[in-house]
Design a protein around this nucleic acid. Structure first.
Lengths: 247, 247
DNA sequence: CGAATAGTGTCTATAAGACATTATACT
DNA sequence: AGTATAATGTCTTATAGACACTATTCG
């Protein structure tokens, strides 16, 4: 019990604790009208055969680089149009049966993606409905269910006050498509007319001039994210409907 | 380059990377009418003599426990009335000159505290104005300036939509004292009368029945946090004044 | 034409923000 | 009385939310 001085391990390396450090990625996308999450099936013990989050150990690289590398290795997903942000770090001593593993969780958002190809390591990657993980119909390895809960809640709340919903859309999108992202991620209906007015007044989209009829009906104007405002907070925020505003 | 399978290191431990894992704590308090942060002076190389965040290496314990233990060891601060939440994890390979150190940063908030006693390791701990760290008048060791920036911004934004401001107050406090917390943390004036109305309608305080005249003038009612709502989101939120609402 | 979706307008309730006024202590 | 702070009230403007209506395509 002599590890007193901060960073004092040059002369006290006997008590310095060392851990394996991993990244785990909650990759969310909106596909087939639902919020879906990328899962892999664990090929090795422990928890062999269980579904889990993609991820792996950190090499001699920065943490976000490790997350991108693992995604690419396991699913061949192109990290170019990928929003990536750090979620939380999980380090309970008992979270991995083999010993101390610190896991830095990342949240990744992507526009609708196809079924992932097997990665270079032939891991079986697939899309699963996020709802199935959240309500326990699908049980993941380790503490990954809790990580998913955290990630989905982060995505839900960031739709309120950032431009993050556009990360689920293609480069160009209609207001309706953006609204459907909100509805699907929040799993609550959103009034199309009020949404239109609010998203316009929040002023973070720019019109491309093009139109599309891919959703049927009257041609819809196509928009893209105003990159200059991409990191701004939305004002006013797009608050999700709150049940029982005040008790 | 054969670390392919996730958690596959039982049979491939030769490529498994291991890191030192530390916690660093951004402990904020409101003292003497200012937002202040707890700093220590590094006693050992590297960066000997530089101010830094309190913290240290993680032992065989969970991460929040490590943060509490380090705070207690270095400053004898009682973690009882302490809000502690995880901030972010910093893991750039070059952030520590001696090698790979992953640091899990924590944000701690406490009501006004006295000058810290030297801890068991005789580290010189002291309060510094957070503003001096933010604007670069005080340069910290490693990447600690960036961590402080992150921590202060987290505190500022959480005052908006959570009950966190009460973590800076004593058990019982007046509306004016709570308002002064908002003003100091946001460093912006807040209209006393509108604040009063909003905090009442947000409905997260309970009146204790007692009154105080410690601030002079008419006796003020004392309140405490309604514990049942402590983890709720504030509705409506206490938004800080935004300059230039919309460009 | 009807069906479908895009986009605009209108009304009401609530909340934000500016600011006046009254209340109750202390010296 | 005078001063200081607490607490309440009033008015204006902005935003949220409900919902009617018009516009433009397709088949």
């Amino acid at each position: 019990m002599s590890i007193r001085r901060y960073y004092g391990w040059v002369s006290a390396s006997s008590v310095r604790k060392t851990c394996a450090v991993a990244v785990d990625i909650v990759l969310l996308t909106v596909r087939e009208g639902a919020l879906q999450i990328l899962l892999i099936d664990r090929g090795l013990s422990p928890q062999q055969g269980w579904p889990a989050l993609p991820g792996g150990f950190v090499l001699d690289e920065d943490l976000p680089d490790a997350a991108e590398r693992e995604l690419k290795e396991e699913t061949r997903i192109d990290p170019a149009r990928l929003h990536l942000e750090q979620l939380q770090t999980y380090g309970a001593p008992s979270r991995d049966p083999r010993g101390r593993v610190i896991s830095v969780a990342y949240l990744a958002l992507a526009p609708g993606l196809p079924v992932p190809q097997a990665g270079t390591d032939a891991t079986n990657a697939r899309w699963e409905h996020a709802a199935a993980v959240l309500d326990g119909r699908v049980t993941l390895a380790f503490d990954h269910n809790a990580i998913v809960e955290n990630g989905v809640e982060r995505a839900r709340s960031k739709l309120e006050y950032t431009t993050l919903a556009t990360a689920f859309c293609q480069e160009e999108f209609t207001i309706s498509e953006l609204r459907r992202v909100y509805e699907i991620v929040w799993s609550t209906p959103v009034d199309a007319r009020n949404f239109y007015r609010k998203v316009m007044s929040a002023n973070f989209l720019v019109q491309t001039g093009r139109h599309t009829t891919r959703d049927g009906g009257r041609p819809a104007a196509l928009f893209r994210l105003n990159e200059e405002r991409a990191s701004d907070l939305l004002y006013p925020a797009m608050l999700r409907p709150r049940l029982m505003p005040r008790s």
